[in-house]
Amino acid sequence: MTVTLTFHPLNNADSTRIDLKDGRKLLVDYADMRNPNDAADPCIDLPTALRNDLRAKARDYFDVVLFTHLDADHTMGAGDFFHFERWTSYQGNGRIKMKELWVPAAALTEEGCEGDAKIIRQEARHRFIQGKGIRVFSRPGRLRKFCEDNGIRLEGRLHLITDAGKLVPGFDDLNAAGGVEIFIHNPLAWRLNDREVEERNEDAVVFQAVFREGMTDTKVLFASDVNADTLSHIVQTSKRHKNEDRLRWHVFKIPHHCSYKSLNCNDKGVDKTTPIEDVRWLCEEQAEPRGIMVSTSEINPGKGSERDKNVRPPHRQAAAYYEDVAAEVDGQFEVTMHHSPRRNPKPCQVSITTAGASFVATAALPSDYVAATPMRAG
């Protein structure tokens, strides 16, 4: 089997399916953003797309479902789609099971959650208390208090916790059948301990996945929705521990739907965002030749358009920077919604083989979009 990364067109939202060569399936985030009453909605029918893929493999579960954080653009509709062990009312009726639920520590300790975020939080708490079917990333002081409040010992749950700077158990051997390593960069527990409350974006899971095909290792960086300051902390921490190789990338799922704040929190720029130094190093010096950058976002706004005035991403200034980075390494900058025809939304994919990574647009492009010549990375 070929390793594939499937990016679903969901406007400014995330859901990426990872298919490993040993047959395991991972889902990174789930956000059903489509309006079922709008036939022209360009967002994919995510629950149908995922169910069809699972049905083709005669299964009703994902091996892993990772919620990088609990914002709606990463959790929307999860309460209607997944089987939750905590409640019988959230089971059956074709719901999709999660063999393992992965969450940042903040997903357990956060208060005031509502809707899908609350359902996921309660499921995570239930599994953590039960001691099975979950992996938690980072262990800040508040997690110890959570354990004390629920009559369990943190030391008895350490096998369920992976700190930043570590490989995930079961995803830590490039020579095993799955041929994958997943290395966690964020959340950083020491940063969590410095704050009184969680910050969902900055406490989100950031990781590097390495896939081995034959003699070729392909590195993929998933940056969730963190901002430039958090990326700077990740870079500095990696350098301090001599883990710079864990930040190299052939494929970069860029952060926060092409927001300028993931490059520079304070300065959008007029026509192009200038990143802070650590982020520049990450984007430019850690890129492998013919690297592929993927923005899970709407089509970038034109200069002076109404959307260009919006505070929310995507920002054309950030896109201009990423496009320059991709051009410098003879690579590609791709936007998920560029590849989603309005009446038949389809995902796009990155295929990983012994030749490296290649971007595959699985749908016809909009008539006003001019694509670069397809490249391979690796």
Rank of each mutant, 00 (worst) to 15 (best):
E288L: 05
H338T: 03
T373S: 12
I18V: 15
R144S: 09
P140Y: 06
I134W: 04
F359W: 09
G179Y: 00
V103D: 12
D32M: 02
E277Y: 04
L158G: 04
W87G: 01
A106N: 11
S367D: 12
D267G: 02
L66K: 09
V197I: 10
R312F: 11
S232F: 07
T88P: 04
G92E: 07
K166A: 13
D267W: 01
A40C: 03
W190P: 01
V3R: 09
S224P: 03
Q208D: 05
V325I: 15
R290N: 15
A327C: 00
L143M: 05
K57T: 06
S358E: 11
H241I: 02
N93H: 12
Q332F: 05
A58N: 15
F146E: 02
I96E: 01
T162L: 10
W87C: 02
K309V: 06
G94C: 07
T296I: 05
L70N: 12
I184F: 12
Y30D: 04
P169F: 07
P301C: 10
K132W: 06
A319I: 01
L70Y: 00
N37W: 10
R17H: 06
H74K: 13
P366E: 03
I276V: 15
D324K: 00
G112L: 06
M215T: 13
N264D: 10
H233C: 07
D278S: 11
A164W: 08
I161S: 08
A56N: 12
R290G: 15
S367I: 11
A357T: 05
W190R: 14
D63W: 01
R316P: 03
Q349K: 12
D116Q: 06
A56E: 15
N193H: 08
K99A: 11
R51K: 15
V210E: 14
R191D: 12
L143E: 01
L46H: 02
Y90G: 04
A13E: 09
A176G: 14
K219M: 03
M33Q: 13
T2E: 14
Y30L: 01
